[in-house]
Design a protein around this nucleic acid. Structure first.
Lengths: 278, 278
DNA sequence: GTTGACTTGCAGGATTTCCTGCACAATGGT
DNA sequence: ACCATTGTGCAGGAAATCCTGCAAGTCAAC
């Protein structure tokens, strides 16, 4: 039973004070969901008691129950569309494809909420300003790093891949200097060599950029700049690199658009040449 | 000061339990804003006390203050997302991120129209039935192949990567037999060695599977089974491997779901072990 | 003007939620 | 192996949030 229904069913028994509370409740839904009975009553200029009694009049056991109902409705209203699609995909039994597509889409929608274009701008500036870009990636992150490296190479940048373990990385790091950038791709949890890498970067004065998921903010020492967004299916093993891949892509497009407007045309010409020769 | 900032500033002092709470807090933001300390702790599988102490560690006077901050940010974020949606595409203003996300979403929506779950089923059956899977990928397709190979390995399958050129591939192909599967990832245009590879596969009786984009149907000789869907931004240089990556993911999920229902649980257990040890 | 039905406010108690001191466990270093 | 440090859980108390009995106020009907 929805809150609105309950109000309608009880409408003839509502007092003026009740109506003022309801007005706040529905008029400022977004904020009302967080308020305690006392806070709500204050906004409506009525006594706290009235709020409690209204809740009971509407058939709830008490005010907390009313608020929970409101929260539920607001939440569902937010992603009603998404929920609908999700349930549709579940109906088609065994349709893993539809399910995967659906969860990737929600993850991408979440992405614009987690990251601002300004953060992307900063990241692209850092990359463009760097003499060389050292790309650190392990495990599942390597697929993203492969993508990133190819693109940066095409932009004419110098990249160094740090994909091995321990010694392999150390050897390639000897030349790291203040003008270089360390770009880390890391998901789920902090990689073994992360701390050492960041420590070294800080020591030689190199800047650092971390592209990550929910684990990003917890990695230490913190990177110079962080781009983090939750990936879909959080908590399960079936996470994909699509969200970070899209972050990387946004960075690449920003570089092309902000710093090298002419580079795009060149790249496409190059691609056509490749098509003809290769 | 934003919650994320506080988390970063405190990152080096965070414990494993703290991180689990943060993961719930950020990963399930929408619901977390309503939870009491005890409820949040239960979701994160930690003791209530830890939640209280985390709040204090982050500089809040207590948990209620932390939750209030989260509520504030979620509310503001909603506004931002709504504003974003209103203005369709803001590339002109330099919002490349929104544009990228938008075009990826439409590409993914197109995907369900291009490929049927039955095609995915066939592909997974072929992979499961194979003794070994030879994965052929070049250029931008390698990022997808890296992803695919890691996952198949975890499933306990034997994979052979064919990522080099000419001779490199030929050498690894000598052992190809009738019980093996050749899985080709190729976009935009037919790769140089494609015809030779397919010819050899046909000769030894190996089955073949091609995952591709609009160029897929034009490749010759045709593969035994084809999964093809248009990628976003068709015609431009800025195409991403997200659509094929999602196809691959659908295949993997189908394998897990259809052929090895128990494998999922095992994988997640494995992941937890990794988290603990690595 | 009185009565009765109803609403509102207050005070105090009940319940939920939150914080903190203490003890135990785990970890890392000597 | 031992100690110091740090993290975790429990128990109890503090604080907030909420509910209810009672009294005062309002208003209309008689």
């Amino acid at each position: 039973m929805t809150l609105l229904t309950r109000i309608q069913d009880t409408s003839e028994r509502l007092t003026a004070s009740d109506r003022r509370i309801i007005e706040v409740l529905l008029g400022q839904q977004g904020e009302a969901v967080f308020l305690s009975a006392a806070q709500l009553a204050e906004r409506a200029q009525v006594h706290e008691t009235t709020a409690t009694r209204l809740a009971q009049k509407l058939g709830f056991s008490g005010y907390p129950e009313l608020r929970a109902q409101l929260q539920k409705e607001v939440m569902e209203g937010q992603d009603a569309a998404a929920r609908m699609r999700r349930s549709v995909s579940k109906v088609a039994d065994g349709s893993y494809l539809a399910d995967v597509v659906q969860s990737e889409i929600s993850a991408l929608e979440q992405l614009t909420r987690s990251i601002d274009q300004r953060d992307v701008d900063i990241a692209s500036d850092m990359i463009v300003a760097a003499r060389r870009v050292f790309i650190f990636a392990q495990g599942h992150a390597t697929s993203v790093s492969v993508f990133l490296q190819r693109r940066l190479d095409r932009f004419g940048m110098t990249t160094v891949m740090l994909t091995g373990r321990g010694r392999d990385i150390a050897e390639r790091l000897t030349s790291l200097g203040a003008e270089d950038l360390v770009l880390v791709l890391a998901f789920r949890k902090q990689p073994t060599d992360y701390a050492a890498l960041m420590g070294h970067a800080a020591q030689v004065g190199a800047r650092s950029l971390l592209i990550s998921d929910l684990a990003g903010p917890t990695m230490t020492p913190p990177a110079g700049h962080l781009l983090a967004a939750p990936r879909g299916r959080s908590g399960t093993e079936f996470q994909t690199p699509i969200v970070p891949m899209t972050i990387v892509n946004a960075i690449l497009l920003t570089i092309a658009g902000r710093h090298e407007p002419q580079v795009v045309a060149k790249l496409e010409e190059l691609a056509r040449l490749f098509d003809r020769f290769a």
